[in-house]
Amino acid sequence: MADNARPEPAAVQFLSADGSFRSDETNDEYLPFIEALGDDELRQFHRDMVVTRRFDLEATNLQRQGQLALWPPSHGQEAAQVGSARAARVQDHLFPSYREHAVGLIRGLDILGIVALMRGVSNGGWNPAENNNFHLYTLVLGSQALHATGYAMGLTLDGVTGTGDPETDQAVVVYFGDGATSQGDVSEALVFAASFQTPQVFFLQNNQWAISVPVGVQSRIPLYRRSGGFGVPGIQVDGNDVLASYAVTRKNLEEARAGGGPRMIEALTYRVGAHTTSDDPSKYRDTRELDTWVGRDPIRRFEAFLRSRGEGDAFFAEVATEAEDSSADLRRRTLELGAPTTDVIFDHVYSEPHPLMDVQKRWLTDYEASFGANA
């Protein structure tokens, strides 16, 4: 039998599409991580997903109303992001692409920073050191894989990983999509990660579409198997199951952090919305496919699981209210954002004040003043 025709193991899953819990030989090695979760942690998973989806909807509406230049929706990918982000430790470094809104929220990022970036009033977005090591959004496909791998190599050289202390040892998670796996940057990152055995998890959110190109055209084999060619072990999970995303990421991060080298996780999920608000998926996507994936909705699935454990209406109503309040606050603060001054063009070119920047800033100020007050 040809290698690319070999039977594939089932993706790791704990929650079926209807929210029922299953445990068998396909996921038993990850079960201890689920059993260690308390009720408050499970409730937080739901809260994270609901607040993120409402934020995402509000930002989409703001873009449609002319308040943002662009918005990359994350609708449908909440479980993959929440599970993996909650699996990371506070000392870990997380490198996003450009739709990891849930990851940013979990790491303590003020979501206005994402909106300001998409509104065009921020040159970068936020300071990772002030947001629990949540690094900057990267719109150049796949380049964040190189940034993350280089950072992970630095952790090894600095001796802050692999010491055997899980409370201080650091690791790196890098997020990217199925389309990015066709970029050379991701392949190069896998080469260096394997060569230097970096403490790193490559977290691939396979949302089935690279803008208008389906994953079946991008690859003839499951994407997690690509990493094996570089010597990086890979595994596939149900990315719409927040418990599976959490447990598999937790285990792989602990192994990477302890000196076991890099890993890749392919989370099977779906981009329910458009690639960005400049895209129209109805031009290339079958509605039957969309309906099938909507039936596997991660939030509805997890709510059914929580209700089966005895969670009542009061909790879900509380979370819904919190999500509405958060989105209303976001809208208010977005509309209050002003335009940046021209000073920001010069202020961050160098890490320290630079005389050339001072000269150029004065020139631009004088040039603008030459047009007069009524210009």
Rank of each mutant, 00 (worst) to 15 (best):
M264Q: 14
N127D: 15
R43K: 15
E322L: 13
Y270Q: 11
E254S: 14
A304R: 14
H147Y: 10
D291V: 04
V50A: 07
Y270S: 12
D48A: 09
T341I: 00
D28L: 10
G216R: 10
G229A: 14
H75C: 12
A323N: 02
G372R: 10
P166G: 12
Q205Y: 01
A171G: 14
L136V: 10
A87Y: 02
G228W: 11
N27F: 01
G239A: 03
A194I: 09
E368D: 01
T181K: 07
G372P: 03
S278F: 08
T52W: 02
T287R: 14
Q236F: 00
G273W: 07
D313V: 00
A373P: 10
A102Q: 06
P298C: 04
R285E: 11
S74K: 05
G76V: 01
F45I: 03
E336T: 00
T341D: 12
P214G: 02
A85M: 13
D18Y: 00
A11I: 00
L136D: 00
G108R: 09
P32A: 03
A369S: 13
E41C: 07
N240L: 04
V186W: 09
A17Q: 11
P96W: 01
T149I: 10
S97I: 06
V232I: 15
V319I: 14
T321W: 01
G177D: 11
Q197L: 11
S23M: 08
S351K: 14
L337F: 02
V213D: 01
Y151Q: 12
L146A: 15
V319N: 04
L243G: 06
Y350S: 07
P214H: 05
V186T: 13
R309Q: 15
T342S: 12
A79N: 05
A116D: 04
E188L: 08
P166Y: 01
W363R: 15
R226S: 00
A373H: 08
G177S: 10
Q183S: 14
H275S: 06
D343K: 13
G120S: 04
P222C: 00
P355L: 06
Q208L: 13
S182R: 13
L117D: 01
Y246S: 05
R296D: 03
I265P: 05
S84R: 02
D325V: 15
F305L: 01
Q360F: 03
L290H: 13
F315I: 01
S122P: 10
A116F: 02
F196A: 11
E188D: 12
L112E: 06
V186F: 10
S308Q: 12
D56I: 08
E100D: 14
I34R: 03
M357Q: 15
Y224E: 11
T249R: 04
P166D: 11
R307S: 03
T292D: 12
Q65C: 06
P281T: 10
V349W: 07
A102N: 03
G104P: 04
Q44K: 12
I345Q: 11
L94H: 04
T269Q: 09
L155T: 10
V50L: 09
Q218G: 00
I345M: 13
L146Q: 13
D28R: 15
F192R: 07
S187W: 13
L37H: 02
V191S: 12
I265M: 09
